[in-house]
């Protein structure tokens, strides 16, 4: 199973980029650029919080953490976490069922890859905290990076930000902040793999 799931940041970054609704429109040479730049931005942001635990960072910024134990009827897609940013008060919502599924999926992984439920929570919080930092700054990573040309229509060129760049950066941030061996979307893939195994 682990052979089919990549473990390097670049490969996992690519997998995340593939989730972008505009992926098919991104010019081929730009794909690598988005992955590398996004990873770099995430790592740089994590560097500024080195030595601090995620809970301390959240406290420092006065971010409320809401835990929701919602079991979704829709098993096909789950939200892991959400951030709602306002200038007055921001909150991060983490879903218990997401934590549970991530922790369960990790159980049989080898040492170093396996993470505890507490670490899963930290990863969720760090990921959303990165988005908080983006919003606080006023520009997301996707907005900072050059737009991709996604179409041409009678001489008019359509440009668009690649939203998934922010997700790649958030994964890189969470990896550094939580001391993981891999980007957190690795665990998404392990989860899907486990679901497939259960089906078969």
């Amino acid at each position: 199973m682990r052979d089919s799931i990549p473990i390097t940041d670049e490969e996992l970054g690519f997998r995340e980029l593939e989730q972008d609704s505009l992926y098919r429109k991104i010019p081929e040479p730009m794909k690598e650029f988005y992955v590398k730049e996004s990873l770099q931005k995430g790592r740089e942001a994590a560097g500024q919080w080195r030595g601090k635990r995620i809970q301390e960072a959240l406290e420092e910024k006065g971010i409320e953490v809401v835990m929701k134990a919602h079991q979704s009827m829709a098993k096909m897609v789950r939200l892991r976490g959400e951030i709602c940013f306002t200038k007055e008060k921001s909150s991060i919502t983490v879903y218990e069922d997401s934590l549970q599924s991530m922790a369960e999926a990790c159980m049989a992984l080898p040492k170093g890859f396996s993470i505890s439920r507490e670490k899963c929570l930290e990863v969720h919080l760090a990921h959303e905290f990165f988005h908080y930092l983006e919003f606080e700054e006023g520009k997301t990573v996707a907005e900072k990076l050059p737009k991709a040309q996604i179409g041409k229509f009678f001489g008019w060129t359509r440009m668009a930000s690649i939203q998934q760049s922010s997700e790649i950066a958030a994964h890189a941030f969470a990896k550094e902040m939580c001391g993981l061996k891999v980007l957190p979307n690795y665990y998404d893939m392990v989860y899907i793999e486990r679901q497939r195994e259960k089906k078969n």
């Binding site: 897609v77 939200l79 709602c84 940013f85 306002t86 969720h124 998404d188």
Partner: peptide, 16 residues
């Protein structure tokens, strides 16, 4: 407007 949101949605077999 004034609020910004982001969510970490898990990719599924269906969407992937």
């Amino acid at each position: 407007n004034g609020k910004r949101r982001a969510a970490w949605a898990m990719p599924s077999e269906e969407t992937s």
